[in-house]
């Protein structure tokens, strides 16, 4: 299982016709962007290197720390065939979205 993933990772994803196969939440103020859902069988799932609760720090070296939700989604939808995600596992920060 993904218990042995390092907390901080750089993950390279190749876009499929359905995108990268994960959902994001956050981007309100500088709370950050988090992976909230990973589609089974999608690119992110198949990579085995991303997990729900990961905070996305950058995409293709575009800083995601203070980005808005809108801009984050736009970058991820238009970043071309591959996305290099710099992520850090922050489940305890992510969990507040689940409790809203």
């Amino acid at each position: 299982d993904q218990g042995d993933l390092p907390l901080e990772r750089r993950v390279l994803l190749r876009r499929s016709p359905n995108g990268f196969g994960f959902n994001i939440v956050g981007g309100d103020g500088d709370e950050g962007i988090y992976i909230s859902f990973i589609q089974t069988g999608g690119v992110a799932d198949k990579s085995g290197e991303l997990r729900k609760g990961d905070r996305i720090l950058s995409v293709n070296n575009i800083d995601f720390r203070g980005v808005t939700h809108e801009d984050a989604a736009t970058v991820l939808k238009n970043c071309g065939d591959t996305a290099e995600l710099h992520v850090i596992y922050k489940y305890d920060d992510f969990i507040r979205f689940e409790n809203r």
Partner: peptide, 11 residues
């Protein structure tokens, strides 16, 4: 009431 909605986007 939590007025702060949170948006979720599929990418």
């Amino acid at each position: 009431l939590q007025t702060k909605n949170y948006r979720q986007s599929a990418v």
